[in-house]
């Protein structure tokens, strides 16, 4: 019985070792890319001891990407990526695995008709700036507003009280020229890299960060694994 017991325990150890070696091989041999990310709700960053990450490729505007296909929930999809300024951005979504280029595999979380609001603002220098916001901003023409925006010109917050300051994002102050709702076909995708486990309490430093970068290793079939998180240009693993 002793030997049978040892064999069974060895099998358990092999299972653990197998998973570790498989993941290590994936990290070593996969293509490294950098994706832009943000904690889903920066005010409530911790749910348990992991960060919930949302990527700029987590929600895609299919109309912008010129994708006409319809998708089903939990369907496997491949998002082709192209590098621009060190960050990889989405260029297309397909159901079949692309034969070339860099792509990431995910599963459809939801496929729906959605809306966003395009805001045209004349800034203090007289320049016209086009901004975008996910929810109805309830702004009118001629309103004087301070917007806090990210690098993609998405509005993170706005204030009609101009005395306020942006806690995150870049400030843009100006007069609203136009607000238009835009309907688009939205595809939400889950890639399996949405959780980043950290030590309890260690996320406090990350809390203020609106924009993080994830280093991801992609396997040949597009499946990703997180290998690190960039905070202020410094990588933590």
């Amino acid at each position: 019985m002793r030997y049978k017991f040892i064999i069974l325990i060895l099998i358990q150890i092999f299972i653990l070792t197998g998973i570790i070696l498989y993941r290590e091989h994936w990290i070593k041999t996969g293509t490294k890319i950098i994706l832009k990310t943000a904690p889903i709700d920066p005010k409530d960053i911790f749910r348990g001891d992991y960060l919930l990450l949302r990527y700029h490729i987590s929600s895609l505007d299919l109309d912008k990407l010129n994708v006409r296909e319809d998708f089903k929930k939990k369907e496997r999809v491949y998002v082709s990526l192209e590098k621009a300024d060190d960050i990889w951005r989405p260029v297309s979504v397909t159901k079949a695995m692309p034969s070339q280029g860099i792509f990431i595999q995910g599963r459809v979380r939801s496929f729906s008709e959605s809306s966003r609001w395009e805001i045209t603002v004349q800034d203090e220098a007289g320049q016209i700036v086009n901004l975008s916001i996910a929810h109805s901003p309830k702004l009118r023409k001629e309103d004087h507003v301070l917007f806090c925006i990210d690098s993609e010109r998405n509005v993170l917050a706005f204030f009609k009280d101009l005395e306020k300051t942006c806690s995150s994002g870049a400030p843009v102050q100006g007069i609203v020229e136009d607000v238009n709702p835009v309907n688009f076909r939205r595809l939400d995708i889950e890639y399996g890299i949405e959780k980043y486990f950290v030590e309890e309490g260690a996320g406090r430093g990350i809390e203020g960060q609106r924009e993080l970068m994830s280093e991801v290793s992609i396997r040949r079939d597009g499946r990703p694994i997180i290998t690190g998180l960039y905070i202020d240009g410094k990588i933590i693993r």
Binding site: Q12, L16, R23, Y50, Y191, G192, I193, K195, Y196, I226
Partner: peptide, 22 residues
Amino acid sequence: AGSFVFGAGLFLISQIYHISLH
């Protein structure tokens, strides 16, 4: 307890490699 440690090990590995899907 050993069997629990084995189960905990599987989850620990999923945390080390940040596996969240399936």
